[in-house]
Structures are given as C-alpha cells and as structure tokens.
Computed example of a mutant assay.
Amino acid sequence: MSNTDTYHAFMLDYATGNLSASMSLAATLHRLMSEEGDEIARVWEAVRANINPTGEDHQEAIYRMEDIATEIIHTDYDAVMWRKGISGARFCKLPENSGSLMRLEPGDRVFAHGHSTLEAMIVLEGCLKDGRDTFEAGELVLATPGERHRPAASGNKACTCFVARADTPFWRFT
C-alpha cells in the first residue's frame, strides 16, 4: 500500500462509484485478494450507505466488476499473449479500456519514471519492488502524479500486475 491518505481517498472513491472502470477494477482486485482491502472497502461502503442510502445501481456495478476481477485472478498468466513494451516490461492490454496486465520476469525492471496522473497497480502474483517498498500478491500500489518509481520483479518468480491509470491524454518522464 502507498500513502495512507491516498489509499483511503482511493478506496472512498471506489465505494462511492467515483473511479473510472479501470481504476474501479484495480480496487475490486485489491478487495478480492486482500483482507485489508475488503475491510476498508466495507467501511467506506457503510459510510456511503449512511450518507446516501440509495445505491442499488452502484451495487450492481460492483457485482459486475467482481466477475471481471475474478476472471483476471484466475487467468493462466503463462498463457497470456504478452507484448514487449518500451519500458522493458511485457504488457497485455485488456478490452474496453479496462487497464492492462504487466509482467516482469525475475531480474526485469522498468526504468525510473513518474506519471502525470494517478496509477494503481495490483500485484496478482509474485513480488514487486518499486524503489519505495516491496509489495506482495493482493497489495495495492498507488503512484501519485510526479512521484517517481521503478517497478521490478523481486525474488526468483515472475511478477504479474494489473495496471490502471486515471484518465489523462499523456504519460511523462519526471
């Protein structure tokens, strides 16, 4: 997990339906793969329900997102058609602008970079180091605008992540 304030703001936006589809999918993956993620989501959903009790459409959207997230979790990542990206990682873009999968083989790392908008990554398998911390399966990695990180596979197993970025027209080096 990243900065506590950023994390709670992200999960609150998830509970209130204020995230894009790919960011909501990242939060759903975190929720399904992490007890902490599920607990925090439930707390923020309870707050939302007390403030705005009519949220049936939002609940339906969460159920649909859970189905997509479950498919991603149960994917055979070795069978994915990976494409080499300019960063050195392998990627597989998911349909309907719902994010992408990123794979780093043991010893692989991406060059140090930043983003012009929030990026959310969920470690699906393996272990990820990003220059700030080390993250295990189910953990949510948030990189805020201008914050530099350098994702790398940690250990002797491939690291696969789901990656989502807030809507913005460009990506930049910082």
Rank of each mutant, 00 (worst) to 15 (best):
F135Q: 01
S100G: 12
M102A: 13
G88K: 09
A158G: 01
S100F: 11
S154T: 05
P106C: 05
D108Y: 03
A143R: 14
F91R: 09
G114F: 13
N156M: 09
L101P: 04
M102K: 05
G131L: 08
N97D: 14
D133W: 06
G131F: 07
L140F: 02
W82V: 13
L94Y: 00
A137K: 05
G85Q: 10
G107E: 00
V80P: 03
H113T: 07
L142T: 06
L140W: 01
L128K: 01
H113P: 04
W82H: 12
E105M: 03
H113N: 03
V80M: 11
E125S: 03
I86E: 14
V110P: 05
E147V: 08
R150D: 09
I86G: 13
H149Q: 01
H149G: 06
R90Q: 14
K157A: 10
V141D: 00
T117M: 14
H149A: 01
P95M: 09
K93F: 13
R148N: 11
K129Q: 08
T134R: 11
F111G: 11
F135K: 01
M81V: 11
W82C: 09
F111T: 09
F91C: 00
R103H: 03
A120L: 09
T144P: 04
I86Q: 13
L124C: 00
P151T: 09
I86R: 14
G138Q: 03
P151W: 10
M121Y: 03
E119F: 10
S154E: 15
A152R: 09
N97S: 11
P151N: 09
C92W: 08
G131C: 00
P151D: 08
N97T: 05
G131A: 02
L124I: 01
L124M: 08
E125R: 11
G146H: 10
R150C: 15
G138Y: 00
E105K: 00
G85W: 10
S98M: 06
A137E: 05
L94Q: 09
M121E: 04
S98R: 09
P106D: 00
K93T: 14
F111A: 12
M121S: 03
G114K: 14
E119S: 14
F111M: 12
V80N: 09
M121I: 04
M81F: 09
L128R: 02
E96N: 14
V80C: 12
K157P: 02
K129T: 10
G146D: 12
E139I: 02
R103G: 06
A137S: 11
G114L: 11
P145C: 12
L118F: 13
R150I: 13
K84E: 13
A153T: 02
P151M: 07
A158N: 01
E96W: 11
G126K: 05
N97I: 03
S116H: 13
M102Y: 03
V80D: 04
P106S: 06
E119I: 12
S100Q: 15
G99A: 07
H113G: 00
L140P: 01
D133H: 03
P145A: 15
G131T: 07
A120S: 05
M81Y: 07
H149V: 06
H113Q: 11
R132M: 07
E147F: 06
K157T: 06
H113Y: 01
K84R: 14
R109P: 08
E105Y: 01
G107W: 04
V80L: 02
M81H: 12
G88Q: 06
L118G: 02
G155C: 02
K84H: 10
A143K: 12
